[in-house]
Write a protein that binds this DNA or RNA. Structure first.
Length: 566
DNA sequence: TCCTGGTTGGTGTT
DNA sequence: AACACCAACCAGGA
């Protein structure tokens, strides 16, 4: 009980289920809650956009307030991580440090640095696993030292481990009364949470997702009032284009540890215990956090998990290097309203539904643009409030059929997929106001609207809103062939070399020529429908499911594929 | 070596 | 709304 301890918050920005902090308090006469804001270190591990920064700062503010309510405070210090800790150890006469043990490479590296420093300075260490349900090392050990590569196998391995640990008890004012947390050095303004302005950030004033533990717990309680909804939750049945999230929206809070995944898991168990027919993994809510656990487990044991090259579980594919097409996707200017609306919501709000992520990820990679999943992953990393090293990379490999998922023939149609659950296009009208006056019949494929309809809607396609950047029908068929080829070559040859030529259209042209001979001529044909296959066609009417496209097969002369990716 | 099953496709038929 | 079919992937298990 005589230690003087620094608790280093990293993720785990909470006072519920925080076993490292609790153990620090139980073994100390004084505990200093500290957050080291090492911007260089953070920038090296991930590209964090302004929305995520705001979320982090709000979460720190929230933590600071909670600590103040309990008679303590949060010290936020900027600078190189280990230098800051070394300085604080001397300044406060520290004998012990505590922190959560995490599995991301940069966290592992930081922990090694902290352990080295502790050895050098003779400090005791407390470190607990609190960001995942299990210590993923235990999962891997139980599976003979390898990460399970399927979810089913993963669940099977977990069945040997029993239930995850119960959450640690909440940290209360009483805990802080027993354990002095000195505030005497300097006033409250010293070492406080920086503002956006101080970090040089500009961000929209509207806050849809306020960061912090108290907001996380409030959101949790709101959802848990609907016990039936929680018990019967089935992920594939949730709606990607509802105007309010159709899922719990807890992912940002879980990713930063404002909400403990073990708290969430055990709260779900208690609801399931009272329910006769609750849903099950993989689609249940518990199944969702087990997916999270799955990706953490595989990521922790896979070298170069966020890259294709040097990643042993990742299919090696010669993706196109097309910066212009990538920028169109990123900025929501593909000409496909469903894709562009999703990317707009992502940039503006920092959260999109899981299935919406599928739609845009498939479009960028194996569906349409044939651009590397790594590029998409980086964009998500920048914009998503719930950006997460393991889950983000894992899902991008999944969607691009590079790992985990292999049914590459299942390609999302950028016109019909969204129309299924939002035939009137309310979601599109909200995020792409330029299209808001289009009739529902055409809003998912406005380039098919007759000129007078476009004029009536006050939006001429090609002028006020872009033409579709590719013919989905054409490029998706080409990509399917490319994928087939990759898979047949992968077995007996070395990995495909990545295309580095400076003209991606040229690459596409070459590949296409090799496979199928010269393409057709270059007119018209920016359509979801196909001349090659009249049975596959896009309905242009939301309310007439089977209605044929306004393009007749004869009218569509498909352009050469390579020229489509502009 | 073969067989099974896989969180969430799309089309067409009933 | 439910189902067969498409074309035929991979990890894991027998």
């Amino acid at each position: 009980m005589t230690h003087r301890t620094i608790h280093l918050f990293n993720k785990g920005l909470r006072l519920h289920d925080n076993p490292s902090l609790l153990a620090a308090m139980e073994s100390s006469a004084a505990v200093y809650p500290v957050y080291v804001l090492d911007r260089q270190l953070m920038a090296a591990s991930a590209h964090i956009g302004p929305l995520r920064w705001r979320f982090i700062l709000q979460s720190l503010e929230d933590l600071h307030s909670s600590l103040q309510e309990r008679g303590s405070r949060l010290h936020v210090l900027q600078g190189p991580y280990l230098d800051v800790v070394r300085h604080l150890v001397a300044r406060w006469g520290i004998t012990q440090i505590s922190f959560d043990s995490e599995v991301e490479p940069h966290c592992v590296q930081l922990e090694a640095g902290l352990r080295g420093l502790a050895g050098e300075l003779g400090l005791s260490i407390i470190s607990c696993v609190a960001h995942t349900l299990y210590d993923v090392k235990r999962i891997i050990k139980t599976n003979d030292g390898k990460p399970p590569l399927t979810y089913k196998k993963f669940l099977h391995v977990l069945s040997f481990l029993g239930e995850p640990d119960k959450p640690a008890r909440d940290i209360t004012t009483a805990d802080f009364q027993k354990c002095l947390t000195p505030r005497q050095d300097g006033d409250d303004e010293k070492d406080r949470v920086p503002t956006f302005e101080e970090l040089g950030l500009e961000v929209e004033p509207e806050v849809l997702w306020p960061g912090g533990e108290s907001h996380a717990l409030k959101r949790l309680e709101q959802h848990f009032q609907s016990q039936g909804w929680v018990a019967n939750f089935s992920k594939p049945r949730t709606i990607p284009n509802s105007l309010l999230p159709s899922t719990t929206g807890l992912s940002p809070y879980l990713s930063l540890g404002c909400l403990s995944v073990r708290t969430f898991y055990h709260r779900l168990s208690s609801i399931y215990a009272q329910s006769k027919n609750h849903s099950l993994p993989p689609v249940s809510l518990q199944g969702q956090v087990l997916w999270r656990e799955f990706f953490y487990t595989v990521a922790s044991a896979t070298p170069n998990f966020t890259k294709m090259e040097g990643n042993p579980i990742c299919l090696q594919i010669g993706w196109y290097d097309n910066q212009e097409a990538l920028q169109k996707w990123k900025r929501g200017q593909t000409g496909f309203p469903w894709i562009d609306a999703i990317m707009t919501q992502l940039r503006q709000e920092g959260w999109i539904h899981h299935l919406a992520r599928h739609a845009v990820a498939c479009f960028l990679t194996r569906g349409d643009l044939w651009i590397s999943w790594e590029e998409g992953m980086k964009v998500f990393e920048e914009y998503l409030l719930d950006a997460d090293y393991s889950i983000n990379a894992g899902n991008w490999m999944w969607l691009s059929a590079s790992a985990f998922f292999h049914h590459y023939t299942r390609i999302f149609c950028p016109v019909r997929f969204g129309r299924r659950t939002d035939p009137e296009g309310q979601y599109l009208r909200k995020y792409l106001p330029v299209l808001k006056n289009f009739p529902s019949k055409y809003i998912y494929e406005p380039w098919n609207a007759p000129e007078e309809v476009q004029l009536q809607a006050g939006c001429v396609i090609g002028k006020d809103y872009p033409l579709p950047m590719v013919s989905h029908q054409e490029v998706s068929e080409r990509n399917l062939e490319l994928m087939k080829q990759v898979r047949s070559e992968q077995g007996n040859t070395a990995e495909l070399t990545r295309d580095v030529a400076d003209d991606p259209m040229e690459i596409g042209a070459k590949r296409h020529a090799q496979e199928e001979g010269p393409g057709a001529d270059e007119s018209a044909g920016r359509s979801c429908s196909s001349a090659a296959s009249s049975r596959k066609r896009c309905s242009s009417g939301g309310e007439h499911g089977g209605r044929a496209c306004s393009w007749t097969p004869e009218a569509v002369r498909l352009p050469e594929i390579s020229s489509e990716v502009m």
